[in-house]
């Protein structure tokens, strides 16, 4: 009897494998094989040159040596990091504030649902369309400069050239990232805050703590795991920054190559004439950075469950 039952269970459980077949076959073909070949190409000197290809010739780790001894990898990493920071600092500050308000039961914001809907909206907008919009609005001949002139902030006929200065270009990219992501972060932090034991707040209230004290002494420390999660996942997202600076600068990373991100660098090597060697090596570097950051997230997440 038990023998029969066991057999039956096993025969059910084979469906576990069967149902996973589509996932793993697809993953193998569309992700894993490309991933392995990408890494493989990193060890070759191999690029397309018009109607002919150069290579592949085995190149050892020379592609990596070239990447790390050249200035570009460092420069583009810094660009990416700086633009991420410009967007992330206001993002985390605003999100913490809004998250605290939304999760504060006593504040009873009547329109909270409407606010949430609106602040999340920019996250769903096509980044390329949004960038094109910003490009046209902040253009030398665009309406933002029209406004600045009408208000006599800049002289007539001499627009402020947003895309000509490193700071303003990077700030625009950062600002767009802020706009697109702070709603998402707010909702994550809010959920985290709602998960905090309400009795702690009540106790604090009895002790006469001010809202500011409650925020810094209770909310923030208890929120630490989810904050780390938000920071690291945002950093992983930041590493993939592409659409906004690509469209804003038409892929040129102007001014003075100060808005070229790591993925734009990768894109330069794999669109048009593909440079398999350099592109492959760069992909490995990006993979390792993301991997390290992901391990941190994984650690933090599992810690929380314990």
């Amino acid at each position: 009897m038990s023998q029969v039952k066991k057999g039956k269970v096993v025969s059910f459980n084979k469906w576990g494998y069967i149902f996973l077949i589509p996932f793993f076959v697809t993953y193998l073909f569309f992700q894993l094989v490309p991933l392995v070949t990408t890494f493989y190409y990193g060890f070759f000197e191999y690029y397309e040159k018009g109607i002919k290809d150069y290579g592949p010739y085995f190149y050892g780790i020379k592609n990596y040596i070239a990447l790390f001894s050249g200035k570009l990898l460092l420069k583009y990493s810094l660009n990416t990091l700086i633009m991420w920071i410009i967007g992330f600092i206001p993002q985390i500050a605003v999100s913490l504030l809004l998250g605290a308000w939304f999760s504060d039961a006593r504040l009873r914001l009547k329109a909270a649902a409407v606010y949430k809907v609106i602040i999340y909206l920019p996250n769903l907008i096509m980044a390329s369309a949004f960038s094109m919009l910003f490009f046209t609005l902040f253009d030398d001949n665009g309406p933002v400069n029209g406004l600045l002139m009408a208000l006599n902030i800049v002289p007539e006929g001499e627009p402020f050239r947003f895309f000509r200065y490193t700071l303003s270009s990077r700030s625009l990219v950062g600002f767009m990232n802020f706009l697109m992501w702070f709603g998402n972060t707010t909702i994550l932090l809010m959920a985290g805050m709602l998960g905090i034991d309400q009795s702690l707040y009540e106790a604090a209230e009895v002790d006469g703590a001010t809202p500011t004290q409650v925020f810094w002494r209770i909310t923030l420390p208890l929120l630490r795991p989810i904050l780390v999660y938000v920071v690291i996942t945002s950093l992983i997202g930041g590493l993939q920054m592409f659409d906004v600076p690509q469209i804003l600068t038409n892929g040129a990373g102007t001014p003075a190559d100060s808005t070229t991100t790591l993925i734009m660098f990768l894109n330069n090597n794999i669109s048009g004439n593909v440079n398999y060697g350099v592109g492959g090596a760069l992909s490995v570097v990006l993979f390792i950075i993301t991997g390290v950051l992901s391990m941190i997230v994984y650690k933090v997440s599992t810690q929380k469950e314990d």
């Binding site: 073909f29 094989v33 990768l266 992909s283 993301t290």
Partner: peptide, 17 residues
Amino acid sequence: LIMTIPTQVSALGFIKL
């Protein structure tokens, strides 16, 4: 584990394939 691997890092092999 594969959840956080960005699609970009395998894009090169992907187009080749």
